[in-house]
Design a protein around this nucleic acid. Sequence first.
RNA 1: GCGCCUGUAGCUCAGUUGGAUAGAGUGCUGCCCUCCGAAGGCAGAAGUCACAGGUUCGAAUCCUGUCAGGCGCGCCA
Length: 607
Amino acid sequence: MSFIESIKDILNKAVADCFPGSGQAFECQVAPCQDRQFGDYQSNLAFLLAKREKTGPREIAGAVVESVRKEAKGTDFKSVPGIPANLSPAIIESIEIAGPGFINIRLKDTALLSELARTLADPRCGVERTARPQRIVVDYSSPNLAKDLHVGTMRSTVIGDSIARVLEFLGHEVLRQNHYGDWGANFGVLVAMIKQEYDSGLGGLEAAPLEAVEELYARGSALKASSGEFARRAAEEVNNLQAGNPESLAVWQALTDKTLHACHSLYWEFNVSLDASHDCPESFYRDDLPGVISELSEKGLLVEDNNALCAYLDGFLNVDGDPLPVIVQKSDAGYNYSTTDLAGIRHRVGRLGAQQIIIVTDRGQELHFRMIRALAQKAGWLPDSVPLRHLGYGVILQEIRDNGQTRKARFRTRSGGTVKIRELLAEGRRRSEALTLDRNPDIGAEELDGIVGKLTIAALKYADLKQRPESDYTFNWDQMLANQGNTGIYILYCYVRIASLFRKAGLDLAGAGPDALAITHELERELLLQVVSFPELFSGYEEELSSHNICSYLYELAGCYSRFWKDCPILTADDEVRHSRLVLSRAVAARLELGLSLLGIEVVERM
RNA sequence: GCGCCUGUAGCUCAGUUGGAUAGAGUGCUGCCCUCCGAAGGCAGAAGUCACAGGUUCGAAUCCUGUCAGGCGCGCCA
């Protein structure tokens, strides 16, 4: 239980004692003080209660404060090893009324220290597992295998990976699903092109560079638009694949093996927790699709319209104001992504037993998923008890300067193509290598390589995760790799300084009890409060899926530590003070490392 | 046309189940290395929270309207 929750309990109890009220439960709100000079935590309960009780906020606050003081009196705080410090009103140092009726609370130093000592050896840094674990499907990354991974997929990959990591950390059973695109019209084009270009055999395809596939696809798409004959062949290949034609499937298999391998190696390089065991691509549902159609049909949800099978749902209109269908079988008898997504829901709920489904894609697909959700519910595949949450993120923009004016446009390469993740990694490595060598010219090639990779990942992921996903995201090299301000690099730097400290101190901190700890400086207390409030980060996470709050916390913690570092000498301090400060540093490092790991970022010991 | 999202400091963004003087970073002006990593710390200047009404003790936050931008809206995913 976090301090914030215990304070809520204490205040709720006081309110219930003072104002038995009209029977309905009253839930106190408690938040960290905006301005720490007021105290540690504050509550505005008096304002909310004033309406119900028809009394002045200050009077209400006064009664509550008195009640808490009485409760806390005579119950001296004593820390008990292994027991959370925050179980009694005795943790409260002072409780006061301020301004028009705010209640400000300051906690006892000993309570904070006791909590620090209790969680020092805890790999979870005091965060409890959820009391109600669920089986949750997180569908993310899901690249189109016809192309190399680009920045659009990167957002899904980075955001989704963090969500999966955090939910897992909180004790849920997370089923990662990489619903990548390896089927459908795109692959008809590709198979037709490969047959045409590599008629001597598939060995040529295997030997070709990855870019060749993308180039092939671009050419094929153009050809499909200009040549009716080729378009027919591409469509025929789609049907061949769906019918299981061995020759077409062999080409398809060679193609997907090649691109999928590249995809997995990129996950590895980018520290993404996806591997082959999470593959559940569109082709996986191949054999389910006819059943999806027949079930929908049996339930009377389908009508034929222009030779396509459609489901019409209430409330969805097209640009002309006419009803907008979900097309589940095209006029050429082929299936499309609606069919596959429906099969996916049916599979995840029916066979995987998902209690919640989270899908991370760009926001452009919002309407699609709203319709799919409605249809799946109507078909009985998605019960009301299973939320299907579509987390849509905004587009990636970049600033463009021309004629002294700046405007924003979609993030593209100079030639107008999509930006590849590979290219971003290369650029990031180039920049962070220069910076690292500048600082540590003697570093060995192998260590440098590892550091540079981790710095690059930290810069890229942190820049994306630190802001709310739904808004558009302005990509800026300088900002994310400049190593200043609110960046992943800044946080890593803080960790590196602590790591350096411990290399010099060479101390074993095992068995550091609360009695051996002390606060002698205001900055120590500020830092300590920030450290022990780590679990509060996660109280609203499942509702919000807000990784950016984790970033904010880490940034504040790092900033707090930097101020402490500046004003509080550690290694040269007297024994007791030195010990306390080392323990505090250890605790900060542990939270930085854990917090970053939940974002998919690894720490470095030097940089 | 309809739907969703966005509009907060020069720039990039937090803050939105109503709460104290609206916060960070960056950029700008300065200051701080005899000291554990200065990729750091400190200070200063910088705001009509798009606009107009409304709700009330109190609104960036809730309601209504307007303006501006982004994305989406039948056989791509």
